[in-house]
Amino acid sequence: MINKEVKNAEEACLGIKSGMTLMLGGFGLCGIPENCISALVEMKVNNLTCISNNAGVDDFGLGLLLQQKQIKKMISSYVGENDEFERQMLSGELEVDLIPQGSLAERCRAGGAGIPAFFTPAGYGTEVGEGKEVRDFNGKPHILESALTADFAIVKAWKGDTAGNLIYKGTARNFNPPMAMAGKITIAEVEELVQPGELDPNQIHTPGIFVQRIFKGDKYEKRIEQRTVISKGN
């Protein structure tokens, strides 16, 4: 087995330079690579283009990189819940490309799957479709969307082995598998790192071939964005 284990987030992020394009997994704050984001803040790389469904909140997730003005451009589907983001966008400091969520996921998957572009109905007749090739299939208009790749894709999984095989937990899977496929170098941070053979091959979500570096994260805060609960009395 090829051993892809690295010591920590710092070692995993070696080679990430200012001006690069990064993909970062997660939906809201669920399933984000917390340890690598902290490392990127420490490394002080800037002018980054970040492809991520969301932009974190003011003081967590990608919000930490925004605070330090390390991001030049965000490619996302939904960016509410972040005041600093809104301020930088309205003042023109931050470029923002908003993409329908399904198109974003499929553009990442396509990037990893060697499909340079595809047609989708999402966004036809809206701002998203402006300037894009339109073609009718089955009597319905579709727009041409191109694949996305990144210099580094950074994903978070629940368990992984040193060969890079990954298993996710709950809805923390989200954008992590398609992004894992689309990085020139893919970094996986996991809560539990085991030896090859310890994960059941039937249960693996991301095959290790897509992952170049893997490490066990030091700590996971796993902040909850909207804590909605029913009190036990009811």
């Binding site: 669920c30 629940w158 809805t171 954008f175 598998p177 909605t228 609960v229």
Partner: peptide
Amino acid sequence: FDGEEDADLINAGKQTITALPGAVYFDSS
């Protein structure tokens, strides 16, 4: 229920939720 929320289990509104018997998780694509 209060105290049983799981950061790895949310809906698209980012609210904590539960999964019913027979539920399944999958990636965004």
